[in-house]
Simulated scan of single mutants.
Amino acid sequence: MSGGSGRVVVVTGGTRGIGLGLARELIARGCRVVVCGRSAAAVDDAVAGLAGLAGVGGPQVVTGLATDVTSRVQVQALWDHAVATFGRVDVWINNAGMSAPRGPLPELSEETFAEVVATNLVGVANGCAVALPGLQAQAAGGWLWNMEGFGSNGQHQPGLAAYGATKRAVTYLTESLVRDAKGGNVKVGFLSPGIVATDLLTADYDGQPEAFEKARRIFNILGDRVETVTPWLAEHLLDARKNGARVAWLTTPKVMGRFLTAGFRTRDIFAAPAEAR
């Protein structure tokens, strides 16, 4: 068990994908976890599954609340629920996000564009606006982590204008908060999972099977499964000590190594795990 023992961690968007994987790994490292998702059913399912990690009759390790992160009132309710259940919050992870089918910006509806911005940028800002004062009010302070993604460091690909713009903005927002946090009792960090096989990734190619098959080769070189990435992310975010820390899975040396060995390895990150077949 690592340095996470007893810490209370909130993971927004923790009912599926990377968020659910993080919740599972944090519990495995002794944390108590609070998850949220948009629907009560999704939250209930996630909590039921995660609760089993403590074993029958074990202590409560997880709770959750249906939350729309685009509403600051609901995000505040999530904080209040976490404190009411576990007494405090030590780590807040702004993970909730969404994407949109790839395509030229003029072909993306105004409603879809607004939803991506509201979830990926406004939702993160709401999480920061609620968590920062809450953490600061605690004698021990705490950690705030924002999830990066494609576009965060200025990458560009056709058809990803909306998603990439929001992730670029989240990185700017986080950099600003890192500066603001200097000398305080709250530390701010960046989480960068790289390319992970989730429904968020495949949703980019909804209705575009040919484009997906074309991109699949690169994904299978550079990408990984949730269960590969999230243990590493959980371990490193719990061990972080310095304000402004960046926990990044897919580093430049790793990218170079993957391409150099691609011809000698066969990978399919989208195939069902062996135990699920």
Rank of each mutant, 00 (worst) to 15 (best):
F190Y: 13
R225Q: 13
G183A: 06
D180R: 10
A162G: 04
V226G: 07
K167L: 11
T171G: 07
N243L: 08
L233K: 08
D199K: 13
N185Y: 04
P193Y: 11
G194P: 10
V229I: 15
D180T: 06
S176L: 10
E235G: 07
G189L: 01
V196Q: 01
G164R: 05
K214V: 13
E213M: 05
V226E: 11
G184Q: 11
N185I: 04
T228H: 07
G223M: 07
A234P: 10
Q208Y: 03
N185R: 14
L160Y: 04
K214H: 12
G189H: 00
N220H: 07
I195W: 01
V188G: 09
A197D: 05
Y205Q: 02
T174Q: 12
T171S: 09
F212P: 07
R217W: 12
F219R: 05
V188Q: 03
A161W: 01
A169W: 06
T202I: 03
K187E: 02
G207R: 00
D199Q: 14
T198M: 00
Q208P: 04
A165G: 13
K167W: 10
E213F: 02
A169C: 05
K167I: 12
A215W: 02
G207M: 06
R241W: 02
N243Y: 09
V226Y: 05
A197G: 11
G183L: 08
R179Q: 13
G244H: 04
V229Q: 05
D224I: 01
K242F: 08
A215G: 11
L160C: 09
E213W: 02
V229L: 08
I195Y: 01
D199N: 13
R179G: 05
L177P: 08
S192W: 04
L222K: 01
T230Q: 10
I221A: 03
A197V: 01
R168Y: 12
V229M: 09
F212W: 13
K242G: 02
G189K: 00
V186L: 06
K187V: 14
K214Q: 14
G164F: 14
D224L: 09
R241A: 14
L233D: 03
R216M: 10
T198K: 00
N220A: 06
V196H: 01
E235W: 02
N185M: 06
A245C: 07
K182Y: 12
